[in-house]
Simulated assay, not measured.
Amino acid sequence: MEANAEDEIILSSLPIERGFGTPGMCLFQEFWCPSTLVKGLNIFHKQFQAKESDIFVASFPKSGTTWLKAITFAIVNRQSFSSIDNHPLLTSNPHQLVPHVEMVCRGDLDCSSIEPRVFGPHTPVPSLPNSIMECNSKIIYICRNPFDIFVSAWIFFDKVKPESLTSLKIEEAFEMYCNGIIEFGPWWSHMLGYWKESLAKPDKVLFLKYEDLKDDANFQVKRIAEFLGFPFTQEEENNQVIESIVKLCSFEEMKNLEVNKSGIVFQSVENKSFFRKGESRDWVNYFSPSMTEKLSQIMEEKFGESGDIF
Rank of each mutant, 00 (worst) to 15 (best):
M1I: 09
E6A: 13
E8L: 07
F20N: 01
P23R: 12
G24R: 15
E30D: 15
E30V: 06
S35H: 04
V38F: 05
L41G: 13
Q47S: 13
K51Y: 01
S53R: 07
P61S: 03
A70H: 09
I75F: 09
N77Y: 00
Q79P: 02
S80W: 11
F81Y: 15
L89Y: 07
T91I: 06
N93P: 07
N93L: 01
P94N: 14
H95K: 13
Q96D: 15
L97T: 10
M103Q: 14
C105P: 06
L109E: 14
L109F: 10
D110E: 11
P116M: 11
L128Q: 14
S131T: 04
S137P: 00
N145M: 06
N145Y: 05
D148S: 06
I149C: 14
F156A: 04
E163W: 03
E163C: 07
L165Y: 02
L165M: 11
S167R: 15
L168Q: 13
E171H: 08
F174N: 04
E175D: 07
M176F: 06
I181F: 04
F184E: 15
M191D: 08
W195C: 05
K201S: 14
F207D: 10
L213A: 12
V221W: 07
R223E: 04
R223A: 04
G229Q: 03
P231V: 00
Q240H: 11
V241I: 10
I242A: 01
I245A: 03
K247M: 08
E252F: 06
E253A: 08
N256F: 03
N256C: 06
K261W: 00
G263D: 10
V265A: 11
V265P: 08
F274A: 07
R276K: 13
S280H: 02
S280M: 02
R281E: 12
N285R: 08
Y286T: 11
Q297K: 10
I298K: 11
M299W: 08
E301R: 12
K302T: 11
G307Y: 11
